[in-house]
Design a protein around this nucleic acid. Structure first.
Lengths: 185, 185
DNA sequence: AGGTTTGTGTACCGGATGGTATACTCTTAC
DNA sequence: GTAAGAGTATACCATCCGGTACACAAACCT
């Protein structure tokens, strides 16, 4: 019998989609065993802390992905406008043009928020700081940059909610295009 | 022994806060009995359809509230800018300056979405149409008005997510102020 | 080859879940 | 004053919950 999942990390994508779709409370261990192909024995071997450790691992993976694909370009690209452009491109790819929801947003709205409070707060705080920095380097004055960074992050999250409610992913694409236009023309 | 809840409608506020905070799946009947002071017997007397009917009733109440306090002023106020101003005021009050979350948004993100799909879609579609109309009457050209209406709705929803994640309601207030400024100066 | 780590299947735990059944007590109307 | 219906309390249902225990198998190292 072949192993479907060889390492703990191989289970994370399936776990992520589950938590995105059903939330933390809504995702049951039996759903997880089906989606990952791992029995409870294996799951608790990889994640001794149970469901909470699984969710924390998914959040950490998301954090790492955004750090390398979004935050770093924003901070490191000598051409600030280019870094911002890469951010919009990465965000569009990550959320699949509005067809995928933000796990950090989902967790932030529910009571799960308290459980992962610092992770959730840090995610948006770091993103906001990096974006503010890039906007400043792109020519915005500091206070306007901070305001606009906030507006961009909220716009992205809100567009995901709206796309989902209206079942119309184009809402997300349009929002991304508008924000990019305002940011770097 | 006095009746804490004399009518079905008296249970809706408590139900709303519960669903907002814990989502549909996360809200259990025992939490509901505690929060409303009603035993299961009474609950199923008022809501024969169980938890799903309770959530539907809450959504209907929200819909009605927004219809009278938000959608109607947008459409009916002869002074379009004043109608838009009243919308921002009503929204700020309803979401308590960012301290309260949008149940429609919460339901839209999870798997609950499918259960109440048409209600959720209609809520945003009607709001968007009313706001587009008001913006047009306030001087925006039709396509720009539709775009900006979308941006306003997403901004509101996103700001609620961000306020919650950062535990900083001021994010919501700032967003509302910025949007109002852009809309009616 | 032997033994140890790493991973897996399965039975099981106490408790909570949404929902039902039923017997009861009020209030109201005649 | 009594009958009907509205509203309530309680016990109970099957099912599922997250988590644990433990025996077992494959992979690895020496």
């Amino acid at each position: 019998m072949p192993r479907l999942v060889a390492e703990r990390a191989d289970a994370l994508p399936a776990l992520g989609e589950l938590f995105r779709e059903f939330g933390f409370e809504g995702t049951s261990l039996s759903m997880i065993t089906v989606a990952t192909g791992l029995g409870k024995g294996s799951l608790y071997h990889f994640f001794p802390g149970g469901k909470e450790e699984m969710a924390a691992a998914v959040l950490a993976e998301i954090d790492a992905w955004f750090a390398t694909h979004v935050f770093e370009p924003l901070r490191r690209d000598p051409d600030a406008a280019a870094g911002i452009g890469r951010m919009f491109q990465a965000v569009d790819a990550y959320f699949r043009g509005g067809g995928r929801v933000c796990l950090v947003g989902v967790f932030s709205l529910g009571d799960t928020r308290e459980r992962f409070a610092t992770t959730l707060r840090t995610y948006f705080a770091v993103w906001g700081a990096a974006l503010t920095d890039a906007l400043s380097r792109a020519g915005w004055n500091p206070t306007a940059a901070a305001d606009f960074a906030e507006e961009i992050l909220a716009g992205i999250q809100g567009a995901l909610v709206l796309s989902r409610a209206l079942d119309e992913p184009a809402v997300f694409s349009r929002m991304l295009a508008r924000l990019r236009q305002r940011a770097i023309g």
